[in-house]
Design a protein around this nucleic acid. Structure first.
Lengths: 216, 216, 216, 216
DNA sequence: CATGAATGAGCTTTCATTCAT
DNA sequence: GATGAATGAAAGCTCATTCAT
């Protein structure tokens, strides 16, 4: 975690560093991310960086935490309605909120996605070790709650299902990004298409693991 | 592709080099993989390596080809029954064959998965350029065939669905690996569990994109 | 061109690096010159070198520029009298100034001579591309001016004559160096001898390309 | 010098090796010349090469000797008339014979020229050490003879003058090659031009070192 | 607290030469 | 005598991290 010196930095500078660091990790991934490039773009001294953070790892962990916070903040409005919605509707809303977040913070998502893809990488393990809230755990909690409310069958493999749901989430976002990059369609239309796919996906988990079969 | 010198190597040595190279790429990914480490572990001279392969890229491409071959060989028995099975059953069999292959060749799979996760990396593009069959394209073909046979709705988004199916495939294999690493259960039991999950997944794609709704 | 870090180096260190680099290029030529050897002799870290220069090429180009500067500075006193002297006298003075410069900076000359001999080498082309004044072009200009003043016949092949003059220049300097190396004579006497030869050479070009024949 | 094994080689193979080696040295110079490339082009084994020659140096020395032989042979017709011609006419004939040889054996000349430019290089010194006949020595002998016949002043610096004459020779040939490469003119016309320049040069040395002044 | 030069282990790659077959 | 795989020292270059100022 960053040192006092970073916390005490004037807001503008701190935000600049965060922004450029996120950009660097988003574009290059963790291993190829270059501290030199970050400090160059921020116009701060290399030494200063090491007054703020212990090392590259420390910076990355900090940023991942910030992303989690930001995303949680963004999604809190949805999560506050946890009791109103059933599990599947809540999921749909979360999914869509996630897509909107991705749309607004594409670099945050690219960075987080690097992490998601890097199971087995030393920093991945460390982040898990630090007990960072990750999507999978969120889904696990929601699933447990849904089971207790009778919305989801109790005999599912919680770990696997939450793994799959977060994978799908990731996979859809990735697909979305790729198509944007290809400029395959205007954003409006892609959004529509993706929401259809989200619905398809929601349908799936409902039919697949719900207590009541659809269409009966 | 490797030079004659590599092809002519005594089997033991050739296999040792392949094994250690696969190990290296599996644990470190392409960029961090170190030729120095490979030759050290094989107890061959650095220069010898460059008698066998043009460079790191050449080695990696060769190994990926080998994996494709091996996997194709392994799955050919399933694919030969392409006409007997309907799309969903075929998928199930492919899935299970894939899991068995992963079980027998865990490091190959780790290496291939690095590639899967590295869309955008120069070697990824090159492998695609070389026209290597990747899972997504295979599924696209199978889906088209299934649509022509009336087993799958014609109004699906082929790209998205094949993307999702190969992602799920990848995701399930990954999940499987993690649990093995954790020693969470004896292999026998995990196998049973996973096959159940495969069935769940097959159910999903059937209900989600099949022409006929289940239970109607 | 070198980075700020090199410019800001304490004089002693900067000069040491220049000296050792010139020595290396002088004895080994560009291709065989070894950065490792340079940094070893300067007792600096390899990484430090790359804080100062982009690469070997960058170092060489910088040094060649320095030589040009130094030589131009050294010869400026002669060139300032460009209008007072006729072409042949000016040449004589330039020649002698060149020899004196060579005497004071033997390694610079060896380095520059490597370049002179390496027409066709990538760095040669690059240096020409950068528009560095080379001897041949200087002579071409002087010749044109001399023709306009009626001191030199107008029907000569400018390219060939300037090629020959700079070759001779080079050749005489080389001869001078060899004899010094052999310790063939005390410097005083060699100087006398060489100046005689310079006069002979000046005579030659006068007879060859001058407007008025000697002895008529 | 080459080993017995090379001498005993069938003519065709021996000549092929010589041809390709000359090509290699001509194109790349000594240091960058690659034994691997030579054996590859000759389709012989690397090991075989080392059965024929001790090393790269050995091969080069051998080839330089062969060039000397060939050139001497080519020029012997001129040198046989040594007594008929005066020094200057002989020189002119030698020069022109040299140009014709260069025209017929461009790669030999490129190789020899590398050597000429590489005073100070280990192999240069060795070749001199071996006492190889070089142009400079030939000129020295001719000059001595010419002095004895009263065609050349006795008070010249033999070393310098022979150095200059051979340098000029080299320089003109180089100029010739460059213009051919540039395709600056058709060969016929270049020849005419060069012969004019040769005459200019002969004039020079006549004026410079002859006993009798021209035009008086 | 900011600075930015210094560090050095590490990387991939090359190539003349050797030597067992 | 022919073979060609094996060798390993040496090359140019990178980059996260340290530390004296």
């Amino acid at each position: 975690m960053p040192k006092e010196t970073f916390i005490n930095l004037p807001d503008g500078k701190r935000q600049l560093i965060e922004k450029e660091a996120i950009h660097e990790f988003a574009v290059s991934g963790y291993d190829k991310a270059s501290i030199s490039r970050i400090v160059e773009r921020c116009r701060i001294a290399k030494g200063s960086f090491y007054q703020y953070f212990d090392d590259k790892r420390d910076l990355f962990l900090y940023l991942i935490n910030r992303v989690s916070e930001k995303k949680l903040e963004f999604m809190s409005s949805v999560l506050q309605n946890q009791n109103q919605y059933d599990f599947f509707t809540l999921n749909r809303e979360l999914f869509i909120a996630g897509l909107k977040f991705a749309e607004k913070n594409p670099e945050l998502i690219l960075m987080a996605n690097w992490l998601f893809k890097s199971r087995g990488h030393p920093v991945y393990n460390e982040i898990i070790g630090v007990g960072l809230q990750n999507a999978q755990n969120v889904y696990k909690k929601l699933l447990r709650y849904a089971i207790s409310r009778g919305e989801v069958r109790g005999n599912i493999d919680l770990d696997f299902v939450s793994h799959m749901i977060s994978s799908m989430n990731f996979s859809i976002v990735e697909y979305y990004f790729q198509n944007i990059k290809k400029g395959k369609a205007n954003l409006q239309k892609i959004d529509e298409g993706i929401i259809k796919l989200v619905d398809l996906f929601i349908d799936f988990i409902k039919n697949g693991i719900g207590t009541h079969r659809k269409d009966t």
